[in-house]
C-alpha cells in the first residue's frame, strides 16, 4: 500500500498547485457524499482551510465561495431577499442542519447531482462559475462539460439583477431529496424556468420561459410537462414527475407573475 496523503491548502492558488503536482488527487469539498473508506484515495486535497467559505456582495452582484455551505446560504443576510430568497428556500429543508453545515456549493456543482436543488435554482438566476484554470463561464456551460478533476471551482457569481422568483419542490418526507424541483424567475424581458430532479439534472425549458414572459402560467406548465424528459428512480416514476412538473411549474410561474 502506498502512503496516503491528506493535504489542506491555505488558499485556492495553493490548492491548484497541489492538484497540478498530484495528478490523482481528489478534492474534498463538503465531504457529505465522499465516503473516504469507500474508494481508494491516494491524495486528498481538502479545501476546508482554503478561505473559500464566504458569501459576499461584489460591485457586480453576489459571490459565493466554493466552500460556502448550504447553511451559510440559508443564513446569509445577502441572500434573504435576493431573487425572493429562493437560494434560501432551495436548501433550507435538505436533510438537517448538520448536513447543510458540510455540504458546499462547490462540491454540489462539481458533483453535478441530478437531485440537486441548488443547481436548479442557480440555473434560473444566470449564475456563473469561476474555475481556477478554465476561468469564468455560465453555470449551464460548466455543467455541460465533463468534470475536469485537475481544475478547481473557486466561486459562483450571481448577477446584480432584481429577479422575481419562485421555488417549488416536492419531497417524500419533509427533509428528503427532491422528487422534482422547479425554479422560475423573471427580470424585465428575461424569464427562466428550470426543472430538476427529473431525476436528471436541472435544465432550462425555453418554451416555458416564453410562456412565462407572455404571462401564461398554465401554458408554461403544459409546455414544460410535454417537452422535458422525465424518468424513474427510487423516489418516483417518470409519469408522476411529469404530472408534478405541470403542477409545480404552474405554481412557480403564477407566483412570479403575481
Amino acid at each position: 500500500m502506498t502512503k496516503q496523503l491528506y493535504l489542506k491548502p491555505r488558499s485556492a492558488a495553493e490548492a491548484a498547485a497541489l492538484l497540478a503536482e498530484h495528478r490523482r488527487a481528489v478534492i474534498i469539498g463538503g465531504g457529505a457524499y465522499v465516503r473516504l473508506g469507500s474508494r481508494r484515495i491516494d491524495v486528498a486535497v481538502d479545501l476546508y482551510d482554503a478561505g473559500l467559505d464566504y458569501v459576499r456582495r461584489t460591485p457586480n452582484g453576489l459571490e459565493l465561495g466554493a466552500m460556502a455551505t448550504f447553511r451559510m446560504l440559508e443564513t446569509a443576510p445577502e441572500l434573504q431577499d435576493y431573487a425572493d430568497g429562493i437560494l434560501v428556500r432551495c436548501v433550507e429543508r435538505i436533510v438537517g442542519v448538520q448536513v447543510r453545515n458540510i455540504t458546499t456549493v462547490g462540491g454540489t456543482l462539481f458533483g453535478r447531482y441530478g437531485f440537486s436543488n441548488l443547481i436548479t435554482a442557480l440555473l434560473a438566476l444566470d449564475a456563473e462559475v469561476a474555475l481556477h484554470h478554465a476561468g469564468r463561464m455560465p453555470l449551464g456551460d460548466f455543467l455541460a462539460t465533463k468534470p475536469d478533476s485537475c481544475d478547481l471551482l473557486t466561486a459562483v457569481f450571481l448577477p446584480d439583477q432584481v429577479w422575481r422568483a419562485s421555488w417549488q419542490d416536492m419531497t417524500r418526507t419533509v427533509n428528503d431529496y427532491a422528487v422534482l424541483n422547479v425554479a422560475a424567475a423573471r427580470c424585465g424581458d428575461q424569464a427562466r424556468v428550470v426543472v430538476g430532479a427529473r431525476p436528471g439534472r436541472g435544465v432550462r425549458c425555453p418554451e416555458a420561459e416564453a410562456a412565462l414572459l407572455a404571462g401564461d402560467a398554465d401554458g408554461a406548465a403544459e409546455v414544460a410537462a410535454s417537452t422535458l424528459e422525465f424518468g424513474n428512480d427510487v423516489r418516483a416514476g417518470g409519469d408522476y414527475r411529469r404530472e408534478l412538473c405541470r403542477t409545480l411549474v404552474a405554481r412557480a410561474t403564477a407566483e412570479v407573475l403575481a
Partner: peptide, 9 residues
C-alpha cells in the same frame, strides 16, 4: 455529522 467529516480536516 462526524461520520462524514474526515478526521484529518
Amino acid at each position: 455529522p462526524s461520520c462524514a467529516v474526515p478526521a484529518a480536516r
